[in-house]
């Protein structure tokens, strides 16, 4: 049996491969609460894991869950209306705690960059070519988007 690349990997390999970068990201968003947030994000991931249809872009999925978990954890989520997603079809219909509603307030240019990073799992060079800017500018837009999320959280 030759499995294709999109088979779901053993969950613990996701933990071992991505826990550190998720912790760094969560620290940037929420400081000292980072460990609690990433713990909860992984548990949410485990809860929905059996329902996933393929193993593509799981790293990006974990970043989205970490983002939404940070908002839930801070209690800020209640202030954000849940986006109306009816009629919209997502390429990745994975449960990510409705990431879209959380990033809705961002400017178009920063939100697009963040989506390419946290939905499409692209590297900065690829984000740059999609957006027609330099890799440095792509990185800056993602960074600005994360900075705005952080401000919302504090």
């Amino acid at each position: 049996m030759m499995p294709s690349i999109s088979y779901l990997p053993p969950f613990w390999t996701l933990v071992e491969n991505h826990a550190d970068e998720l912790l760094r990201y969560a620290r940037r968003l929420a400081g000292d609460d980072a460990e609690d947030i990433v713990q909860e994000a992984f548990l949410r991931g485990l809860r929905s894991y059996p329902g996933l249809k393929h193993g593509d872009h799981l790293r990006a999925w974990l970043f989205r869950i970490t983002t939404t978990t940070a908002f839930d954890h801070s209690g800020k989520r209640r202030e954000i209306p849940v986006a109306d997603l009816s009629g919209e079809t997502f390429e990745h219909s994975y449960d990510d705690g409705n990431f879209e509603s959380i990033i809705e307030f961002l400017s178009d240019v920063n939100r697009d960059a963040l989506r390419l990073r946290f939905v499409d799992d692209l590297a900065y060079e690829d984000i740059a070519s999609k957006l027609g800017c330099s890799p440095a500018a792509a990185r800056r837009r993602v960074s600005t988007a994360i900075g705005s999320l952080r401000e919302r959280l504090t």
């Binding site: 779901l8 990997p9 969950f11 613990w12 390999t13 485990l46 894991y49 059996p50 996933l52």
Partner: peptide, 9 residues
């Protein structure tokens, strides 16, 4: 993971 389930911990 493929034969039993992905939630390998």
């Amino acid at each position: 993971a493929w034969n039993i389930g992905g939630r390998v911990v």
